[in-house]
Design a protein around this nucleic acid. Structure first.
Lengths: 241, 241
DNA sequence: CCAAAAGTGTTTGCCGTACACCCATGC
DNA sequence: GCATGGGTGTACGGCAAACACTTTTGG
């Protein structure tokens, strides 16, 4: 292990990236957690993450960790915020840049992990190591608010999906019921949200549903507003001073 | 100057905070810039900022820099994003956590600055040092979108202000014209946006205008939507991967 | 046929825009 | 009085919630 000498007047810190990986499994919003095998917080659950390598960009580090943990290429990986309280890590000065990704229910759950053990846990979940409770809460709130004005809900779905399945995503993340008829019209009416594949399937009983894939839009026109909140966004990621 | 020895397997970097300080002067949106007196980028304009001190929280570092540059306590200081490309600073690995603050037109412009020279410059402004062009653009876009769903526009105003002055803030930042009658009703109708002081003033000609101060709301119900954009938010701060 | 889920048509009410109108001042 | 800016009332239009209704499947 090589070492370097650094001038102390610069604020020398270690930098990690931590991931808030959300998915929907068994009808519940869940987050990928790792059980720590080494101190500090040995035995506690934590968000997956790791140190940024020398010469590595922050977003690249996040994508690398995501790939290591899940084996998937990210459909969407978004910087959530940076957490740098001096006391957040007992080992010393470590700041972490948190990233958020929304994933479909993975067929091979948590492939290729090198951590002690990893598993999906329903949110809310508390008692995490470091300040990860806060980071997780910020990530969930960000996801909730992003569903309103971006087509990101499709990131929770497999490549093709029905409108009812997309509605289930919204109902799960927002913890509300939505009118199936109006939802259908809003989604198919919002430019670039979804594209029809021409195929249809019978999921349970009833009339076959058309299958759709993600559209090309990055912003929703018009937005899907959460019921009961007026037009509030809410999702300020607690990085305010 | 003391030194410490750090294990090379940890990603050891220096951390700075940079500030996007916006105000409205002479009817234009302006940003506080510093002319660099030392390399790298000697002589170039840059955002104000500096290294995070050992043991100092990120938000505290941003507040300290703000105080050093302007002498004001921040009404609102918000984390904008973290920029960590390996090539962004020729001195080595330096990542920066950018903060955004909105300030009223300061009576004593840039008091107590220790930098070479500092001045307010209209945005857009390009040719900044490091990756500050990008950070500035992200900050401006964030400010634009935050005016829609938060009462932050009042941060650009002095302690008491008229509705017309608040409207001028929106018109300047959004670069649009707004209907004075409807704007008045929306602002006074949004719970907690502004409170009347009971006083009134004559600014130019015409009927005296009531004076207001900031209300206690942190979120606008209902939001003030920008004309011509549907219900888009737009303000994703380019921290997406 | 009945139940259940997909999808469409229609009504109703709210809210935002546009704009007519009144108020209060300086000149 | 007239111009100018502050502030209120009101009609119109568009969108979204609510829900009746049709379609298409499995039992």
């Amino acid at each position: 292990m090589s070492s370097i000498i650094v001038n102390m007047t610069l604020s020398v810190v270690s930098v990690t990236v931590d991931l808030v990986l959300l998915t929907i499994r068994e009808g519940k919003l869940q987050v990928l957690l790792i059980r720590r095998g080494i101190p500090p917080f040995e035995g506690a659950w934590a968000l997956p993450g790791g140190f940024v390598l020398p010469g590595e960009d922050l977003g690249d580090a996040a994508a690398r960790e995501l790939s290591e943990e899940t084996g998937v290429r990210p459909a969407h990986l978004e910087q959530l915020g940076t957490y740098g309280s001096p006391e957040r890590d007992p080992r010393g000065r470590v700041i972490t840049v948190a990233y958020l990704a929304l994933l479909p229910d993975l067929p091979a759950p948590v492939a290729g992990t090198d951590a002690a053990d990893a598993s999906w846990r329903p949110v809310p979940f508390t008692g995490l190591a470091f300040d990860h409770d806060r980071i997780l809460a910020d990530g969930v709130e960000r996801a909730r608010s992003k569903l309103e004005y971006t087509p990101l809900a499709t990131a929770f779905c497999p490549p093709s999906f029905t409108i009812a399945e997309l509605r289930a995503v919204y109902e799960t993340v927002w913890r509300t019921r939505l009118d199936p008829r109006n939802f259908h019209r809003k989604v198919t009416g919002a430019a670039g949200f979804v594209e029809t594949t021409g195929e249809s399937v019978i999921r349970d009983r009833g009339r076959p549903a058309q299958l759709f894939r993600r559209g090309s839009a990055t912003l929703l026109h018009p937005a899907l507003l959460r019921p009961g909140l007026g037009s509030a966004q809410g999702g300020r990621s607690a990085t305010d001073c």
